[in-house]
Design a protein around this nucleic acid. Structure first.
Ligand SMILES: [Mn+2]
Ligand SMILES: [Mn+2]
Ligand SMILES: [Zn+2]
Ligand SMILES: [Zn+2]
Lengths: 145, 145
DNA sequence: AATTTGATTTAGAATAATTCTAAACTAGGT
DNA sequence: ACCTAGTTTAGAATTATTCTAAATCAAATT
């Protein structure tokens, strides 16, 4: 019993089935780690958190599970500059904000359809299947951390 | 005599002076390589091209020069997924398009003010000093390469 | 002109995130 | 119970980049 809610467990096994991969305790646990704290952890952070729930898991498996979750569409990779890849289970179109002070990455909701509309700046010969919008700057003190 | 136009040579020494760094043949040559072919080369590609104009240059110096040019604001780093960092001397606000087929990266002009306007989606406590917009997809055949 | 000094260049070593390899393990289907 | 393909695992390999320390350079001073 990891902390996956029934609905998330369903989404996980559907997505894995659909892409011909098995549901395993390691994959469930890694997925639950991502859903529990949505702070865009790195593979290393996912490893630490997963290990506390499943001490036998290895770093290689964490990388494998993350790659599996990405490949079946449940998780997105977020790359900011040359930092280690971060992982985001938020499937809604959204932007990211990277705080230069803390290094933290936040989800930024965007109005419905806006991400798609951005692609209108593309000349006709370009056709985009993904749009990535990243802000970098500072959080005014007082808010969050 | 490297292939720097007089106007670019001026911009270079101004920017270097302003940040307390010296104008050197290596820096001039690396800068001219970036200006001559605006295809967002990697450090490795910059090294190859620079070496053909200045055979004695080393990889370490290319990295150093690129870092210098970035630090004085003449060049921007462009990071796409986990690929090697690319370098872009286009100082106008613009977006990038990454072709999944060829791996090439293209500049996409955006309407004046649009990049700034994007920051309006940010909640009040966020203040962005940089906005990055990257499209990924395919170029319709026929166009470019 | 020679000397000093700090910046720059250079080759090669070190680093670190990620991927690869190959062996052990697991589980579903016969 | 056995087969088989998929998964997990430890550790080695990879690779872009950074670091180190010595050599070189050039502006400023003597
Ligand atoms: Mn901040
Ligand atoms: Mn294409
Ligand atoms: Zn996110
Ligand atoms: Zn560009």
């Amino acid at each position: 019993m990891n902390s996956l809610k029934q609905i998330d467990r369903g989404a996980l096994s559907d997505a894995l089935d659909h892409s011909g991969q098995r549901t395993t305790p390691q994959r469930e646990t890694v997925f639950s780690v991502l859903l529990d704290e949505r702070d865009h952890p790195t593979a290393d952070e996912v490893y630490t958190r997963t290990k506390s729930r499943m001490p036998s898991i290895s770093m290689a498996t964490v990388y494998n599970c993350l790659e599996t979750l990405v490949s079946c569409g449940l998780v997105k990779q977020v790359n900011i500059e040359r930092e280690p890849t971060r992982y985001c289970p938020n499937l809604a179109p959204h932007a990211h904000f990277h705080c230069r002070d803390t290094g933290r990455v936040y989800d930024v909701p965007v109005p419905a359809g806006m991400m798609k509309d951005l692609a209108k700046v593309l000349p006709g010969e370009y056709s985009a299947d993904s749009v990535e919008l990243v802000f970098r700057g500072h959080l005014s003190k007082g808010k969050k951390q």
